[in-house]
Structures are given as C-alpha cells and as structure tokens.
Write a protein that binds this DNA or RNA. Sequence first.
DNA 1: CCCTCTCTAGAACGATCGTTCTAGGCCAAG
DNA 2: CTTGGCCTAGAACGATCGTTCTAGAGAGGG
Lengths: 200, 200
Amino acid sequence: MGTETRERILEAGAALVRRQGYEATGIKQIAAAARAPFGSLYHFFPGGKEELGAEIVRRAGARYGRLFPAVLDRSPDLVQGVRAFFAAAAVHLEESDFADACPIATVALESSSRSETLRAACAEVFEAWITDGTERVVDAGVPPERARSLVVGLLGALEGAFVLCRAARSTEALEVAGAAGAAATAAALAGDSGPGLGSR
Amino acid sequence: MGTETRERILEAGAALVRRQGYEATGIKQIAAAARAPFGSLYHFFPGGKEELGAEIVRRAGARYGRLFPAVLDRSPDLVQGVRAFFAAAAVHLEESDFADACPIATVALESSSRSETLRAACAEVFEAWITDGTERVVDAGVPPERARSLVVGLLGALEGAFVLCRAARSTEALEVAGAAGAAATAAALAGDSGPGLGSR
DNA sequence: CCCTCTCTAGAACGATCGTTCTAGGCCAAG
DNA sequence: CTTGGCCTAGAACGATCGTTCTAGAGAGGG
C-alpha cells in the first residue's frame, strides 16, 4: 500500500516547513527528504504545493495539538501544567538549535495575505487548539468566556515568545511568557477579574 | 543625488516584505514597486537580496520602534499607553485587511534557521525595541529587571497576537493581549510580584 | 574638453521553481 | 492470461529566481 508514502511526504514536509517556512521549502526538496518518487507527490496531492501545504499544516496541527493535553495530564494542576508546557517548549527549542518552535506559525504569517487556502488551514488549527484548551480550562472550573480569553492569551504569548526566541537564539521570552502564563492561569482559577492574561 | 532611489527601494521593499515575507518577495518585484531601475538595486546593495533584506529589516525596525514611544507620549500614563498601543495595532491591522502587522516578524521566523545575517538583523531590532521600552518603564518607576521582563512579555504578546489575528482575520487575540498587557503593566507599577506578564 | 565616478538601464545567464507528461511496474479482479 | 486501477519514476516545460554583465547618461573637477 502506497499510503505510507503519503505519510512520509507529510512527515518530511512538516519538518522542513517548520524550520524553513512554506515559501522557502521546495516541493522537490520534500520529495527528496521523504525518499518519495516525485510523481507520487502529484498523485497524492493533485492540487500541487498549496494542497500539500494545507495538508501539512492540518496534520502538524493535529499532532502538536495533542502535546498540551498530554502535558496537562502529567501535571498535578492547571497552573503547573501551563508552567511545564512553556518549560518543555523552551527545552525543545534550545535542543533543536532554535529550529523547532511552532510548526505552523511561519506558514500563518507567510500565507495570510497570499493564499486563502493556507490561511484557512492555519486558522482552523489555531481555533482547534483554542477550543480544546478552553475545554480543559473550563473543566478546571473557569467560566467559558473567561477560559477562552485565557487560552487565547496563552497561545498568543507562546507564539510571540517563539518569534523572539528564535530571532534572539535565547529562551528568555519563553521563560517570561511561561511565568506570566502560569500567573494568569492562577488568577483565572481564583476567579480574579484582576491582572493577568485573559481579563477582558 | 540618487540616494532617494535607495530610499524608495527600502520603502517599497519594506511594504512588500511586511505583507508577503522575505522569501515570497522577489528582488525584481521590489525594483518594480519602487520604480527603480534594476541595476540600481545591485549598485546600492552589492550584497544582493540578503543585504537588501537586512537593511529593510533594520530600517523598518527603526521606524516602527518610534511608534510605541509616540503613543506613550500621547497617553496620560503607562497603563493607558499600553492599552492604546494594542488598540491602535488592532485598528491598523483591520484597516489594512489584516496585512500590516509587525514588519519583521515574518522575516524573523523565515530566516532564523536559514540566514544568519537576517536573523541577526531581526534580533538587533527586537533588542532595540526591548531596550527602549524598558527605559520608558523604568522611568515610570519600575525596577530595571522587572521592567525588562514586562516589556519582553508585552512584545511577545503583541507578536503572538499578530500571528493569531492574521490567521483568523479577527482582532480577538489583540484585544485579549491588550487587556492582559495593560493589567500586567498596572501590576508592575504597583510593585506586585503577583500575576501578570513579567513576574519572573 | 575630457576623464572619472555615480547611477541608470536592461539584456543575458544558469539555476531552480512548480507543474505536466509519458511510461512502466505491480497486483487484484474478471 | 488479460484488463484496469493505483502507484512509481523521472524527463521535459515554461516561468521566474537571484545574479552578473555590458553600455550609456549625467555631473563635477582637472
């Protein structure tokens, strides 16, 4: 069955796009990295690069989206879960020589004014992450609207920290964001309407 | 003097790169948009696309960096200044059909694993923004280290919100980030070591 | 007047881009 | 055995990429 080839293409493509972005990654480069025959690429993705890109985004989004719940499940509470997630992101980023941050943020910025297809795929992934995250926060006892704002703030802080960290080749921004995110989460759990991410 | 041609090239290049990113923007496209002869491009930027890109980043960074102090000067205090800055960013983003966000964030993500020259230019700009912002916050009475964390958190929140807003074509994330940023600023001014961005 | 230096102007080059096309291998169904 | 599908395989195409090269316009100092 050749479906595993399709798999390899998406896998290799995701790794390349995460590091280089969409525009800088060639379709032939993906085929080579996946050790896939070039013809297969257009067989599995007749829509060409754009379709392949959208599929990579969705696929990487679904995989990366499982990380936050997984970390939460291993943490005693929400606040420590948030702290642990930012800390893990910092470790992983540094270990990859500041290459592996968010798998889709670069594509989101590159495509938002150029390809409606790609932009929509990124938006879809972000929204799924937010919805899933909100559910977890609501389960911890935070009112839905407040929970969503918290999660949007957390995700935004994470994405922004990735931008700064990759540029500076330093984890400072992730550390700051992690501490702030944890504090904001604690405030939301305490029912404060006060300071912190997510007070609207 | 032909230096004004150089100016036009940087101007046009900045506008294109801001919307499309670095990789998707062609050097000939910049020349055409600037109504500059193509030969002039290599005359002014002998280092080719990379040198031009780095110059665009630095130039756009210097210009955009003047915005935050300007907004602050027109605001009664730091907290309202922060709020106003995020609000203005949201208005400008929406008015530009979600095209004009941070002029260098896309380049930062695209280049960080591909071009040391460009990555360094972006890092330089971010660091300058942070340094300048920290100075303003220190002037308002916050201890230096705390001030820097606050500013790093604010900038990260802004950049991340831009990513989410452009993808979603919505200003939600900027609104959340603005409220959180203002609250965190208030907390820092009050000397709280408690919740909010920048509590390390 | 001429020489030099800056800047304009765009043709030309090789490389690479995404895409299309043709051809063959493989395997299950008839 | 033959047919028809999926999938592999890569050559070929036109377009465009960044870069280099040649040539000339224009101004200023000797």
